[in-house]
Design a protein around this nucleic acid. Sequence first.
DNA 1: TAATTATGTCACTAATCGGTAACAATTTTT
DNA 2: AAAAATTGTTACCGATTAGTGACATAATTA
Lengths: 209, 209
Amino acid sequence: MARKIPKGEFRNKERTKLKLINAVGEVIRTQGYTKLGVNNIAKTAGVSKKLIYRYFGSADDLVATYVRSRDYWTAFSSHLSKELAEQHQHDHGKDFLTNVFKNLFEDMSEDSETQKIILWEISEKSKLMSEISEDREKFGGGEIFAITDPFFAGTDVDIRAICGLLLGGTYYLVLYSNTTGGSFCGIEIDTENRKTRLFNRLDKIIKWA
Amino acid sequence: MARKIPKGEFRNKERTKLKLINAVGEVIRTQGYTKLGVNNIAKTAGVSKKLIYRYFGSADDLVATYVRSRDYWTAFSSHLSKELAEQHQHDHGKDFLTNVFKNLFEDMSEDSETQKIILWEISEKSKLMSEISEDREKFGGGEIFAITDPFFAGTDVDIRAICGLLLGGTYYLVLYSNTTGGSFCGIEIDTENRKTRLFNRLDKIIKWA
DNA sequence: TAATTATGTCACTAATCGGTAACAATTTTT
DNA sequence: AAAAATTGTTACCGATTAGTGACATAATTA
């Protein structure tokens, strides 16, 4: 007969596994992906590093377990559905993309973890990050363009290319502002002013299309 | 009387200083800024690491010496002047920005070092990188907007915000393509096709303005 | 030529990295 | 209660890190 999984008060495998998994998130948020070493993760979790190898095989496997458990497209996706629900109330779907971008910018500015994952994606070639990128591409791209493509079918407006540029620009500006704190192309990054300027531009570009 | 600076065939201070400085560039190009350690730099230069401390004080000082000696805005700036020269031949300055962006994209795709510096800028908070960012901001921003601003004065087109978004988007797409190799927003990154699509979009957005 | 100074290398330290063996303590089974 | 299996910690290993002292040798001065 299969042995029962030990779940003592002091020694609880599942509990410490969670400690380790959560520690990965904390390290990413507070120190970045470059600090994801066995020693640092174990110390953050308050647990022996030996258990990383015993329960997950390696530090990479532990990190993969954590990263795969998260959906870094959630912020975008949730606002997408929210906007979708309100879409038909408005005159057209005109504000749709504008609002999606706006919400994305706001959320990402406050989401340290997603920022660092995006930085990770463009910094290192790795199987794990390729997965995340593909995932983001599949979910985000698929859903959103299923809505926008019909609007621009037949026109010479390549909405995907435009969105790619604007989305990349949004990512870059958020990352840039959080590290340098300075201005970019004469846009003051820290002030509330910046946001309105950017959003006005996003709005304008999208409305042109 | 001041002692003459030794310039022997085998022992030449200035020559080995150059070896070390150039090694910094090679490391950035081939391995990225994260690998800028004393051991690695000295090994790349083929010289004892002790000399880094003797001649530059620390590895950081050596790196700073190298980075400050380079002008990472050069690529942009050179095309700027080239376009400037041809500007008045064209009907308007309409193609001006389009060409600047196009050339920037092309150059940056082939310039591994600038890519890694831009990645460095948005990855780490450091005095050195803040300097580079400010420099880029001052030179690039100043020159280019001195030309474009008059065109859009009085209109409600915030050309700086638009350029910021497009420039950031360009940076991001180049970095993204070099690491993931996959597609972004349905834009295939590796093919020649992508370039034409992007340029068409850049052109369109700019012409709208 | 002999003495002095600068250039360069080697070997060493202390700290930190990933990874493991040995051992202690708790939980489950018998 | 005793035996067996699992959970967890400590101490260690080899490799690599930043930084330094001792030493050899080339280049300059006297």
